[in-house]
Design a protein around this nucleic acid. Structure first.
Length: 960
RNA sequence: GCCCCCGUGGCCCAAUUGGCAGAGGCGGUCGACUUAAAAUCGAUUCAGUGCCGGUUCGAGUCCGGUCGGGGGCACCA
């Protein structure tokens, strides 16, 4: 027992009493299924049907780590719970639950160390986690809990993969369609095969290869991020800007490997455009726009004087294709650059340097081939880090010239590593006059600089990026851009290019296709097998789920982090009995090999909201009727553009790109294929802040226990020794962890919940302060004391009359609290409740009894934040059952308006006096009353005011 | 380098969106209860909103600049 409860009155609301109350009500909720939300149809439907007014609230589900929770973890969970509880009390059908994102590296790594199966570790952690969630009193519908590692869940993850695999993107219709419909187009000859042969003439392998190039999930041999230290490949999103793995910080290398990809780029436009239809933080939208990186511009083909590679060879007419966002500057293109990896480099490089070549261009080599080879070799050795640290422009002349199509100018072609193979076409037209990178290169290599946009008069920079009039842009055939503005010039050039066959308008994206396979054990197996010819086959639905086999070794082969030339070996490769199977896929039993990669960790989280809706459905991923009810668009409620989706999705901003982009992509595919009615998974997104903490280091830089540090005059001491304060994360190694368990022990969960919500706005990050928690505790003690006699435990509430003032206080609080709850402003809702409680305490704590009208309203209004103590008091007030479904107090307009209003009177903006007038006084009456006021009259000194501003209900300002 | 967000009493935070800077909590001080302390209760204290300038009858709120803190992107043609 805590010493603070010793000697306290026997019926005071202490941590011990709170703990008892909390456990009892948690059990009650469990036994009564209080938070079960009915579905329109299926096993979770009820005879009574469902109300039209519903709310689907979702938290970003947690990874069940073995570390346990600290006080920062549940912040968002409490926020959604308060909102869900408030909404439920006002009569809405509320779906709120929580599952687990349970595949992932930590369990696998633990398995590697200890030999314990990742499933065992993970399931134990989930048990621990569930106990903690229960302790915090969340109103989850526990029937809807899912876990991504549950075969009945990942069966549907595999099923969705198959839908994606069996689809192609029809660019004309702007949507995904079944691959069978594409095959029909080929069969009927409506679509030409790549080499023009008839579909019927193609072999099975050839047909399958053609279809594979259209599938939304496909195998590709292309450059991928290979991370030898982890023994796996990674998606672009999982690689940091330093070119290292986000997890583990190992070096990542570009290697050509055969891997599964998802054609997310097909959805680039919709993923960008539909952001406008979402109620999301602008910051997150900006990050997604940035990641997708759409730029509009033009493709331009530059003919090359194809340098003969062999003596006497008349070079074939060839051209270099570039992408530019500034086609208007085409007349200023004075040279070109290819990325070192560009496939055309070899064919363009002639035997010998042209006559009189600039020495700076040759790199001192005796032939172009030698110079280019040396440069490419040097570039290949550079890591991302090197490239970033050193931005000096380097490059080498290929010996080849291209022709600027617009004016016939002969311009040199360089190889330089400031052009990246991964963006656009891997080649650029260089316009030093309007691009700083090109300017830098041109300066270093003595290349011509032509301005095609007239800078402002006072411009003294180098490359000019601003607006202006186009100059120096005309050819001999009468085509001229001179005098146009940039936008007009772009249009004119694009038109000219298409008319003359040199290119046309084009759009490029930074977004790449999503690398979807990982060489790990602890992930979803692919529902794919390969036949003896190596052709991939999707497994039929009835063979799902494909379950993970038992293996000896859980880890892939890992290597020296720097060993770039190594190859991935997935752990499933060794499960021979599982890999080699005989199956009947429709043409008799045949031998197949299973795909041995597994899906990335993001797969399971791409669609879990759909499974929450229909967690027990064994026929379908989710019944369409249930999906339509919980997630379907509601234009009458959210406007004509409403894409539908979860009503409120709360989580950290760290998932701004990865999870949220992948999830949107999957959802759109499912929408296109007709499985869901919503076009987006999450209609409204909210990023909660982080709870941070102070940490302290001693003179050696070693962390000391934060809770034992004392402050004195702004300096900090531990055991009498001065220590240094740091601010940041909460973590074991920082010795500053505070757990919800500690808080529950010391104050009870309701106090903890109330404190977390009242610390500040949910979206803000703020420091944890254990010493402040007592304020929330005192508040609940005062509330309890108003209702329960601390000495006898008897109810001290009676049906006594309340005063008009009481009602004004009460109804003002009700109106404010309702607004605050609805707007997720729990901190101010809490403050208003404390204020009302303080008023009632002041008015009735010394009286015989507290009026029931006030007591009940307080109890109901505190319930979303402090549900256990509210249930207990509601019960003691004589009510049967739970208050979880309301009622919630309603404000009576009559008490929100005063009969009189006190106006502050400003003279020249400074408050000088006050005057009280009837609330219905019109502006003239208020003005008259103000001017008649003694001090104001004195300030006017008999003169006329220059101006009088009356703000109805606010104030009067007299200007003299 | 580019883009975004935030600076209000000693601390965490409010302020009806341009209208009296203070709702709430912590802390401090004083008092009650107690043999005493803790806990609890009551009372009370404290800033002119990072800084400079502008718009306005009126600016924490809008605009420009500047300093400080946090975040995102980064040779993307």
């Amino acid at each position: 027992m805590n010493e603070s409860t010793e000697g306290a009155p026997p019926h005071r609301y202490t941590a011990a009493v709170a703990g008892d109350v909390e456990r009892r009500w948690q059990q009650y909720w469990d036994e009564h299924g209080t938070f079960h939300a009915p579905n329109p149809t299926g096993p979770l439907a009820e005879d009574a049907g469902v109300p039209e007014d519903k709310l689907f609230v979702q938290d970003m589900f947690p990874y069940p780590s073995g570390q346990g929770l600290h006080v920062g973890h549940p912040l968002g969970f409490i926020g959604t719970d308060v909102f869900a509880r408030y909404s439920r009390m006002t009569g809405r059908n509320v779906l709120h639950t929580m599952g687990f994102d349970a595949f992932g590296l930590p369990a696998e790594q633990y398995a590697v160390q200890t030999g314990q199966h990742p499933r065992t570790t993970t399931e134990n952690n989930i048990e621990r986690y569930l106990a903690q969630l229960r302790q915090l009193g969340f109103g989850h519908d526990t029937r809807r809990r899912i876990s991504t590692i549950d075969p009945e869940y990942y069966r549907w993850t595999q099923w969705i993969f198959l839908q994606i695999y069996n689809s192609w993107y029809d660019a004309e219709q702007g949507k995904a369609r079944p691959i069978a419909e594409l095959e029909e187009q080929y069969e009927r000859g409506e679509r030409a095969t790549p080499d023009g042969r008839d579909w019927s003439e193609l072999t099975r392998i050839e047909r399958s290869a053609i279809l594979d190039t259209h599938r939304l999930a496909y195998v590709d041999e292309s450059p991928v991020n290979w991370c030898p230290g982890l023994g796996t490949v990674l998606s672009n999103e999982e690689v940091t800007s330093e070119g290292r793995s986000e997890r583990g910080n190992f070096p990542v290398f570009q290697r050509n490997l055969k891997q599964w990809m998802m054609r997310i780029t097909a959805y680039a436009d919709r993923l960008i455009d539909d952001l406008d239809r979402l109620d999301w933080p602008e910051k997150v939208k900006a990050m997604q726009r940035n990641w997708i990186g759409r730029s509009r511009g033009a493709t331009v083909h530059f003919p090359v004087h194809a340098a003969a590679t062999e003596a006497g060879d008349e070079a074939a007419a060839s051209s270099i294709e570039v992408f530019t966002t500034r086609p208007d500057t085409l007349f200023g293109a004075t040279y070109m650059v290819l990325a070192p990896e560009h496939p055309m480099v070899d064919e363009l490089t002639p035997e010998q340097w042209p006559e009189g070549v600039d020495e700076r261009w040759t790199g001192g080599a005796s032939s172009p081939a030698e110079a280019v080879a040396a440069y490419r070799h040097a570039a290949s050795l550079k890591t991302e880090m090197d490239r970033q640290e050193n931005r000096d422009k380097t490059g080498v002349f290929t010996g080849c010239y291209a022709v600027n199509p617009v004016n016939g100018a002969r311009i040199p072609v360089f190889v330089a590593d400031y052009v990246l193979m991964g963006y656009g076409t891997g080649a650029i037209m260089a316009v030093p006059g309007q691009d700083q990178r090109d300017w830098d290169f041109a300066e270093a290599y003595g290349l011509e600089i032509i301005r095609t946009v007239q800078p402002d008069d006072d411009f003294d920079g180098e490359a000019y990026l601003g607006d202006g009039v186009v100059v120096n842009s005309a050819n001999d055939e009468g085509f001229s851009l001179n005098g146009l503005d940039i936008t007009e010039a772009k249009d004119a050039v694009v038109t000219w290019l298409s008319e003359h066959g040199y290119g046309g308008a084009d759009v490029q994206y930074k977004l790449r296709d999503w690398l979807f396979s990982r060489q790990r054990y602890w992930g979803e197996p692919f529902p794919i097998v390969y036949d003896v010819e190596g052709i991939a086959h999707a497994l039929p639905e009835h063979m799902l789920p494909v379950e993970l086999p038992e293996v000896e070794e859980y880890s892939p082969a890992t290597y020296d982090p720097e060993a770039a030339e190594t190859k991935p070996v997935p752990p499933l490769e060794k499960a021979t009995d599982w890999v080699e199977v005989e199956l009947d896929l429709g043409d008799g039993k045949r031998p197949y090999r299973r795909e041995t990669n597994t899906m990335p960790n993001w797969a399971g989280s791409c669609w879990y909201q759909l499974r929450y809706i229909d967690p027990t459905n064994s026929e379908r991923m989710c019944d369409p009727e249930n999906e339509r009810y919980w997630m379907g668009p509601r234009p009458e409620e959210h406007g004509p553009d409403d894409p539908g989706g979860v009503d409120l999705y709360v989580g950290g901003v760290e998932h701004a790109v990865l999870h949220l982009l992948y999830s949107r992509f999957w959802h759109k595919v499912l929408y296109d294929l007709g499985y869901v009615s919503s076009e987006e998974p999450y209609r409204k997104l909210f990023n909660q802040g982080y709870i941070q903490a102070y940490a302290y280091t001693d003179s050696r830089g070693v962390y000391v226990p934060a809770e034992e540090v004392v402050e004195e005059n702004g300096r900090f001491f531990y055991n009498g020794e001065e220590v240094t304060q740091e601010y940041g994360k909460m973590g074991k190694s920082l010795k500053n962890v505070v757990t919800p368990d500690q808080m529950a022990e010391e104050y009870g969960v309701d106090t903890f919940r109330f404190y977390e919500m009242s610390m500040g706005p949910l979206e803000d990050s703020r420091p944890w302060a254990t010493k402040d928690v007592v304020g929330a505790h005192r508040f609940l003690q005062r509330l309890w004391r108003l209702i329960v006699d601390e000495n006898t435990g008897r109810l001290r509430v009676a049906d006594v009359e309340t005063s008009t003032e009481d009602r004004k206080q009460l109804h003002r609080a009700i109106a404010g609290v309702r607004e605050d709850f609805a707007g997720l402003r729990f901190n101010t809702a809490g403050a208003k409740l404390i204020e009302l409680n303080n008023y009632v305490t002041k008015t009735y704590s010394a009286a015989e009894a507290t009026p029931r009208e006030l007591a009940e309203a307080l109890v109901l209004m505190i319930a979303p934040m402090c549900p256990h103590v509210a249930e207990e008091l509601w019960h003691r007030l004589g009510h049967e059952g739970s208050l979880a479904h309301g009622p919630f107090p309603e404000a009576d307009e009559r008490y929100l308006v005063d009969e009189t209003v006190e106006y502050p009177i400003q003279v020249n903006g400074k408050v000088r006096s006050r005057v009280t007038v009837p609330a219905d006084a019109d502006q003239d009456a208020v003005q008259a009353a103000a001017l008649a006021e003694e001090k104001v009259a004195a300030a006017l000194d008999g003169g006329e005011p220059r101006k009088v501003i009356v703000v109805p209900g606010r104030l009067v300002n007299v200007v003299v």
